[in-house]
Amino acid sequence: MTDKKKEYLSVLGLLLAALLWGVSYPLTKVVEDCPTFYIVSIRFLVAAAALALIFHRHFRNFHKEILKYAFLLSFCITSMYIFGTIGIKYTTSVRASFFTCLSFVIIPILNLVIYKLKLNKTIVISVLICLAGMFLLSYTADMGTFSLNAGDLLCILAATAGALHIIFLDRVTKQENMEPILFTIFLMAFVALWSTLIALATGAFAYADTTPFQFGSIIALGLFCSAAAFLLQSICQKYVPSNRVGVIIAMEPASGCVISVFVLGEAMHWTGWLGALLVMVSLLYMEISASRSNA
């Protein structure tokens, strides 16, 4: 298989991962009454167990580097949940959803600062279009002023943690002898461990009102929105630069809002539909430009 075909398939794989994360929006709505880290703990325990069971033969490829990188990157994902969970308590849900989805803006900035990776014209234009789309997608009359409060800053830290995960994963997947499936199993296991410790410390497991439907939704979150989505990301990101990955992953909130409209019957203003369209336009522009430059 040629490198160009691998890149093309990887973009499709990352897009599928973003769509799976988008499914988490209506599923999370079903379990919104449950404590956050009760959900996160069970979700990632299910993800780790399912992947370990399905791909148990991959454990023969174990080496310490896989464990080390999974351990380190698990803090990025866990931090994203911690900052996001605390942040939403001190700001509106609309502002929280906007600021926690800004990873696609933060990624090229961090790449420039950490790795001196210069921004090209295509990435800048794609990010700006995507930013406009995300603003329209999140905007409501009660969004308030543009001044930042403590909750907004915490949500930006959540987005930064997500951005760091994508940036560091870009380097990890290119390591020699890196087994993406085994890496994802340990990554899910470490996130499950940290989340379970937080759930125990906060008394989240004392919650006993979970209905069978809610518990089934958490299982679905683990199987599809964690196990499948993160596995696709670990496999596919090797062939797509992290700056492009950020814009692709921005399809998550856009698809999540659209799916919620059709599945949950939620209403979305015309500005939201326009915002979702702009996010898709930014992705198409970036990928068409990338295809032309590789031609």
Score class of each variant (00 low, 15 high):
residue 5 K to C: 12
residue 5 K to Y: 15
residue 11 V to N: 09
residue 13 G to A: 10
residue 14 L to P: 01
residue 14 L to I: 07
residue 16 L to W: 11
residue 19 L to H: 08
residue 20 L to H: 04
residue 21 W to P: 00
residue 21 W to Q: 02
residue 21 W to G: 02
residue 24 S to E: 11
residue 25 Y to K: 02
residue 26 P to W: 08
residue 27 L to N: 10
residue 33 D to S: 14
residue 35 P to N: 07
residue 38 Y to E: 03
residue 38 Y to R: 01
residue 38 Y to N: 01
residue 39 I to C: 05
residue 42 I to N: 03
residue 43 R to S: 12
residue 43 R to N: 10
residue 45 L to I: 13
residue 50 A to H: 09
residue 51 L to R: 05
residue 57 R to P: 09
residue 59 F to L: 08
residue 59 F to V: 01
residue 60 R to L: 15
residue 61 N to K: 15
residue 62 F to H: 04
residue 67 L to F: 15
residue 72 L to S: 09
residue 78 T to V: 10
residue 78 T to E: 08
residue 78 T to R: 00
residue 79 S to I: 05
residue 79 S to M: 13
residue 79 S to A: 15
residue 87 G to Q: 06
residue 89 K to A: 15
residue 91 T to E: 12
residue 92 T to W: 13
residue 98 F to V: 03
residue 99 F to M: 12
residue 101 C to N: 11
residue 102 L to D: 05
residue 107 I to A: 04
residue 109 I to C: 10
residue 111 N to L: 15
residue 113 V to Y: 07
residue 116 K to A: 14
residue 116 K to C: 13
residue 117 L to K: 13
residue 118 K to L: 12
residue 120 N to K: 08
residue 122 T to W: 08
residue 123 I to G: 08
residue 125 I to P: 08
residue 126 S to C: 06
residue 127 V to R: 00
residue 131 L to H: 09
residue 132 A to N: 09
residue 134 M to T: 00
residue 137 L to P: 00
residue 138 S to W: 10
residue 142 D to P: 02
residue 150 A to D: 07
residue 151 G to S: 11
residue 151 G to V: 06
residue 151 G to P: 06
residue 152 D to I: 01
residue 153 L to Q: 01
residue 156 I to T: 03
residue 158 A to T: 01
residue 158 A to E: 10
residue 158 A to I: 04
residue 159 A to D: 04
residue 161 A to V: 07
residue 166 I to K: 00
residue 168 F to Q: 03
residue 168 F to A: 05
residue 170 D to W: 13
residue 171 R to W: 14
residue 171 R to N: 14
residue 171 R to V: 15
residue 172 V to F: 03
residue 173 T to G: 14
residue 173 T to C: 13
residue 174 K to R: 12
residue 175 Q to L: 15
residue 175 Q to R: 11
residue 176 E to D: 15
residue 177 N to S: 14
residue 178 M to L: 14
residue 179 E to G: 11
residue 180 P to T: 09
residue 180 P to R: 04
residue 182 L to A: 01
residue 186 F to D: 00
residue 188 M to S: 10
residue 190 F to V: 02
residue 191 V to W: 06
residue 192 A to F: 09
residue 195 S to T: 02
residue 199 A to N: 02
residue 200 L to V: 11
residue 202 T to K: 04
residue 202 T to C: 10
residue 204 A to N: 05
residue 209 D to W: 11
residue 210 T to D: 03
residue 211 T to Q: 10
residue 212 P to Q: 05
residue 217 S to M: 06
residue 223 L to Y: 05
residue 223 L to G: 03
residue 227 A to V: 06
residue 227 A to E: 02
residue 229 A to E: 03
residue 230 F to S: 01
residue 230 F to Y: 13
residue 231 L to C: 08
residue 233 Q to S: 09
residue 233 Q to A: 13
residue 234 S to P: 01
residue 238 K to F: 13
residue 238 K to L: 14
residue 238 K to M: 14
residue 239 Y to T: 03
residue 239 Y to K: 05
residue 240 V to S: 04
residue 240 V to P: 02
residue 243 N to K: 10
residue 249 I to N: 08
residue 251 M to R: 02
residue 253 P to H: 08
residue 253 P to Y: 06
residue 253 P to V: 03
residue 255 S to P: 07
residue 259 I to A: 15
residue 259 I to Q: 13
residue 262 F to S: 06
residue 265 G to N: 11
residue 265 G to H: 10
residue 266 E to C: 02
residue 266 E to V: 04
residue 275 G to D: 11
residue 276 A to Q: 04
residue 277 L to P: 02
residue 278 L to C: 09
residue 279 V to N: 01
residue 280 M to Y: 12
residue 283 L to P: 00
residue 285 Y to N: 12
residue 292 R to M: 15
residue 295 A to E: 12
